[in-house]
């Protein structure tokens, strides 16, 4: 079931077209990564999805409710975790949560529940200003979970946190998705996107330029897995024999080794190794290179994700 549907979203600021005809959907239980370099239009898109900003054109629908800046009902369905630490430093962690719970009409028992989820129960009575960066990030996420939203929007939720807090946040996100929550996730950390996201959308200069699973994007761009072998034996014979394998697209000889371009390195590697050893060639080393989202991103935008 579709929880978030964006169609034809556009927004201009003066002469700058910040978002241009962006459309995508997120299903129940799906984690969708929105990737793009700084200034690509991610935050503007999120602002329109959360009802902070009104689009010039297009429509956002959350679980059947049209979203706008005045859409109180639709806003109740969305949990928002902004990139900035949106907390009140002179209130305790619990007071911060109680305030937002009261705004959303969430039960008070939810406060203790989300404190437990993000592992802050022991420090709930401390002022937020006294929290470490990681704890603040976790509290920031907790606010977005208070009212059990259908859609959770996380804008760079792990920016600048310690590995322990990052892992905890990622574990939370996985658990929430498994429980059926739709999640929109932006990050600068490619490994996070790869680990968490079922699908990703790549946004650049305000336009959604590619969308799909990692494998779909890799295939769309013609990127292939690579296997590099360092061998002792008859390289020419080995190359000819490997070139005949079904999943091997290309074989090149270099020095004491071979470079193979294959469809799926994980599936192909056992077949390749078996074929080599059965022909008396000794394998000194193996290196597998799978095109990742970073490669896809670089290919699509001409920039690294953190630029």
């Amino acid at each position: 079931m579709t929880v978030l549907s964006c169609s034809g979203l556009s927004r201009r600021f003066g002469d700058v077209q910040a978002v241009d005809d962006v459309s995508f959907t997120i299903a129940e239980g799906e984690t969708y990564g929105l990737l793009g370099p700084n200034g690509a239009g991610k935050t503007t898109t999120i602002s329109m999805i959360t009802g902070v900003l009104e689009p010039d054109a297009g429509e956002v629908v959350v679980a059947g409710q049209p979203m706008s800046t005045r859409a109180i009902a639709a806003k109740r369905l969305v949990g928002y975790v902004p990139q900035e630490l949106a907390l009140y430093p002179d209130l305790t962690g619990r007071e911060n949560l109680r305030f937002f719970a009261s705004l959303y009409g969430a039960a008070r028992s939810r406060v203790d529940h989300v404190l437990d989820v993000v592992g802050l129960t022991d420090r709930a009575g401390d002022l937020a200003r006294e929290y470490s960066g990681g704890m603040k990030r976790r509290l920031n996420v907790a606010v977005g979970l208070l009212h059990e939203p259908r859609l959770l929007v996380l804008d760079e939720p792990t920016a600048g946190v310690d590995p322990q807090s990052r892992n905890q946040i990622m574990d939370n996100v996985r658990a929430l998705a498994a429980a059926g929550m739709a999640i929109l996730y932006t990050t600068h950390y490619m490994e996070e996107a790869e680990r968490l996201c079922d699908r990703v959308g790549v946004i650049d200069s305000g336009r959604l330029i590619a969308e799909g699973t990692r494998r779909e994007l890799v295939e769309k761009l013609g990127e292939r897995d690579r296997i590099s072998l360092l061998l002792d034996g008859d390289l020419a014979h080995a190359a000819a024999m490997l070139g005949d394998l079904r999943d091997v697209r290309n074989v090149a000889v270099h020095g004491h080794g071979l470079d193979l371009v294959v469809d799926d390195a994980r599936e192909c590697l056992p077949v390749v190794l078996s074929a080599i050893s059965s022909n008396g060639v000794v394998v000194r080393s193996v290196e597998v290179t799978e095109p990742d989202l970073e490669t896809v991103f670089l290919h699509l935008t001409g920039k690294a994700l953190r630029e």
């Binding site: 602002s47 959360t50 009802g51 902070v52 800046t69 005045r70 109180i72 009902a73 806003k75 109740r76 969305v78 928002y80 902004p82 990139q83 900035e84 630490l85 949106a86 907390l87 009140y88 430093p89 937002f100 705004l103 959303y104 009409g105 606010v143």
Partner: peptide
């Protein structure tokens, strides 16, 4: 300045 305004604006609260 502190970023909490965005959170208030995203909450089911009239401006």
């Amino acid at each position: 300045r502190d970023g909490t305004l965005a959170r208030l604006l995203a909450a089911p609260v009239r401006r």
